[in-house]
Write a protein that binds this DNA or RNA. Structure first.
Lengths: 342, 342
DNA sequence: CCGTTCCATGTAATCGATTTCATCCTTGGC
DNA sequence: GCCAAGGATGAAATCGATTACATGGAACGG
């Protein structure tokens, strides 16, 4: 079974022959073990002349370490996850690992498919920003002994460390911010079907508002069908049709916020004059909208870095704790000028 | 060297024992070769009971096929490339391949690093959307016999098929569009240091304008230092400071367009009233800006799909041609209303 | 000067699959 | 009833590395 391109990859045996030593010696030189200066030189010369590069597949088989990490991401076209992936990739590479990306596209079956593939590839560890809640393969992944770390989203039955942002402080600040600006009828747009993340953001927001005597009644809690822009738009439309429409809206995902903005603009409503708008996830684009959007910024790059470090602790046999990094409020102009409320 | 987690991965030998057959038979059953119905059942039962999954590393070593493709992308946080990566990932997965992503971050050295890693991993094929022009590792990649396809960007000395979009038609349409709207002083913002892509877009735009008797003098050709938002903003500022500032600007990359928009807004200039703005790459966000931006849309998903198909042809030993897919103009409101010019 | 130690190196086992080749059994034709 | 053919199966080679173990020579202490 000849390799298609007529590949002329040299192997360790070629190097050994050329240098007049055994393959063991070559291996030792390349891995910085014993050999004496003179032999070492001959081997390195042979390596250079032949352009030899060790076959990682063979090495992985023998050592049971592939040097690759897997990342399952819920949606590659969502800028929040993109930035997360970018950070993870960066951290992984700087530690000598490469990254196999699986895009679950918010579909649990596809996610399972990918987890299976990655396990078959014997990646050294797996990072999962899970789509949906229940996932059969996730339990199988922990059962297989492959180090696993959850990213951004927890999964109820899964016993693995989770790295994510804590919205408590930011949502508390946000409630105060809105209260100070005189907003009395807040609303929230959350992800479909009671995901842990969405539920948590809702509860935190609600109790934070309550501290200022502001209610968040159920009719102003809009659940989208998808996590996309169209879902956000539809829900915003419903909210605006209420007898008492909201004067402030928090969208718990950036794509949904985009849809919400479109609906506001389509109705000729102004931000922040008619409705204040706040978005979860501070993706760069929101700094350039008109007006710039007040956002709850998750420490995306830190999350990515922390996730990789946590995962590598697992790989080395330790059992690290979950990581919670604080999100923070980034006030811009989409809720109104602060001084206008003083 | 025990696997850290105390992994209990079963191997083909376990299955063979349990089914009371040889490993060869197990392998044959799993690969759909000869065995008779009854043996087959016993093997499959054993596989099921043990939860056996073949070790892809071992399989790859033996068959010299890893079932993985590599994708080197210039900038993972650029939405155009994200969509491209998403499309590639989709196409690859649907054909049974998984995707290892390398993020070059527009740095040639990092790109080389990644190509090396991917070659060491013996990926079955490599897609490269190259950062910069000269790349030593790229030649080494072709030399190694690894199938290679260039994506979106050509690279002068490299003899490999290239899949990209052809801006000719779109830029011709754009020139007509601008001429019809009475714009007489166009400008262009291009990538730094005369990249093949930037040069080509500039030349096409210039000749298309010439057909309408409109000149694109060198002082209205702004080259950025980086491909990022800040570069775009700086160049836009320089253009506006010209004695004869442009009345229409084409930004040849979406991040640069974003910077350009910010500069316009900061100066209180209105789009399209004061300056028309056109962006290369129709990323979803530009549909939601105010006003929605006229864009040159590359067939991103088709490019991704075509790239994977072309690459797999190489993998199967053929020598496919380069692919050129037409980009098209998507007129929105950022150049002014069409009827206003009639 | 001999025996122990240690170091560089080679030989061969190993990782977990696929695949060639040999073997055995069944089947069928004459 | 015998021989050829063919199908199912097993034993063993193989992919390309790492590494445990064996070996041989140099250095060194007593």
């Amino acid at each position: 079974m000849e390799r298609a391109g007529g590949g002329l990859m040299t192997n360790i045996k070629d190097v050994a022959e050329r240098a007049g030593v055994s393959v063991a010696t070559v291996s030792r030189v390349l891995n910085g073990r014993s050999p004496v200066a003179e032999t070492r030189e001959r081997v390195l010369a042979a390596v250079r002349e032949l352009g030899y590069r060790p076959n990682n597949v063979a090495r992985a088989l023998r050592t049971a370490r592939t040097g690759a990490l897997g990342l399952i991401i819920s949606d590659l076209t969502n800028p929040f996850f993109t930035e997360l992936a970018d950070a993870v990739e960066d951290a992984a590479r700087s530690l000598g690992y490469s990254l196999v990306i699986g895009n679950a596209g918010e579909r649990p079956d596809q996610q399972d498919d990918y987890i299976r593939t990655l396990l078959d590839r014997r990646i050294d560890g797996l990072l999962v920003s899970s789509a949906g809640t229940g996932s059969a393969m996730l339990s199988e992944a922990v059962a297989s002994g492959t180090p696993l770390v959850l990213l951004d989203r927890t999964v109820p039955g899964i016993d693995a460390p989770c790295v994510r942002a804590d919205g408590h402080g930011a949502l508390t600040d946000l409630a105060a911010h809105l209260a100070a600006l005189g907003r009395r009828r807040p609303a929230i747009i959350v992800a479909p079907g009671g995901t842990p993340t969405g539920d948590e953001r809702l509860e935190l927001f609600r109790t934070a508002l309550a501290a200022h005597g502001i209610a968040l009644p159920d009719e102003r809690v809009g659940a989208t069908l998808d996590l996309q822009h169209t879902g956000g738009r539809r829900v915003m439309s419903d909210l605006l049709d209420l007898p008492e429409p909201p004067d402030a809206v928090l969208a718990t995902d950036n794509l949904m916020a985009l849809g919400a903005m479109d609906e506001l603009r389509a109705r000729g409503l102004r931000v922040p004059d008619d409705v204040a708008l706040v978005v979860y996830d501070d993706v760069p684009w929101f700094r350039h909208t008109d007006p710039p959007l007040t956002a709850i910024a998750q420490p995306t790059r830190d999350l990515g870095r922390a996730a990789v470090h946590t995962l590598l602790e697992c790989v080395e046999g330790r059992r690290p704790d979950s990581v919670l990094l604080p999100a923070r409020l980034v006030p811009r102009r989409s809720c109104g000028e602060s001084r206008a409320a003083d």
